[in-house]
Design a protein around this nucleic acid. Structure first.
Length: 174
DNA sequence: GCCAACGTTGGC
DNA sequence: GCCAACGTTGGC
């Protein structure tokens, strides 16, 4: 008998000059494939752990005010990142190929803006959020797990009620 | 633009 | 398989 896996939560980090939350929102269907990740830990999370319907906090890094700027949903299981064997791609990896993929990605779908955004300083000031991985000095993971407590706290910080939470739960049923 | 922190690479 | 050197990330 198949058991539905509990919904999980993630934080995905991007430099907005490279790919921003607005870019995600403007993509066809609000969906993109999260290609180009070349880090084994992040690869393992996308390949093995992330599931459709999981919640995603979208974080803008390497800017004056780093912040979680929106919510997204994982929209696929992990699958091979074909840009790895495209010599024209800036993420080309000559060791990878269609019959031996090394790198994996998931699809990500726009869910909602977080307004106001939850800044790095906001996170640091919140007792439930100050230990988040994204705040750790030297952290370089572009995909990292978030607890349900942290997810709820971020939403509460931004909007002060649970309307976005209800919206994101509704997205689970697609 | 600086520098600390980290993952990856490559020599041995 | 160790570890120093290197390249990259990212906050400041």
């Amino acid at each position: 008998m198949e058991k539905k896996q509990k919904r999980r939560y993630w934080l995905m980090k991007s430099e907005p000059s490279c790919f921003s939350f607005e870019d995600l929102k403007a993509s066809p269907g609000g969906v993109v494939h999260w290609d180009g990740v070349r880090n084994y830990q992040a690869r393992n999370l996308m390949r093995d752990e992330m599931k459709p319907g999981d919640g995603v906090l979208f974080y803008h890094s390497s800017i004056k005010t780093p912040a979680i700027v929106g919510l997204a949903t994982v929209a696929s299981l992990g699958y091979p990142d074909h840009t790895a064997w495209d010599p024209a791609s800036e993420h080309y990896d000559p060791k990878a190929g269609p019959d031996h993929p090394i790198w994996f990605m998931v699809d990500v779908r726009y869910l909602a803006d977080l307004s106001p955004p939850v800044t790095r300083d906001d996170l640091r000031a919140h007792p439930d959020l100050e230990s988040m991985g994204v705040l750790k000095k030297g952290n370089r993971l572009s995909v990292m797990p978030v607890t349900e407590l942290e997810w709820r706290a971020v939403l509460a910080l931004s909007i002060g009620d649970d309307s976005l939470e209800k919206q994101s739960e509704g997205d689970d049923n697609q």
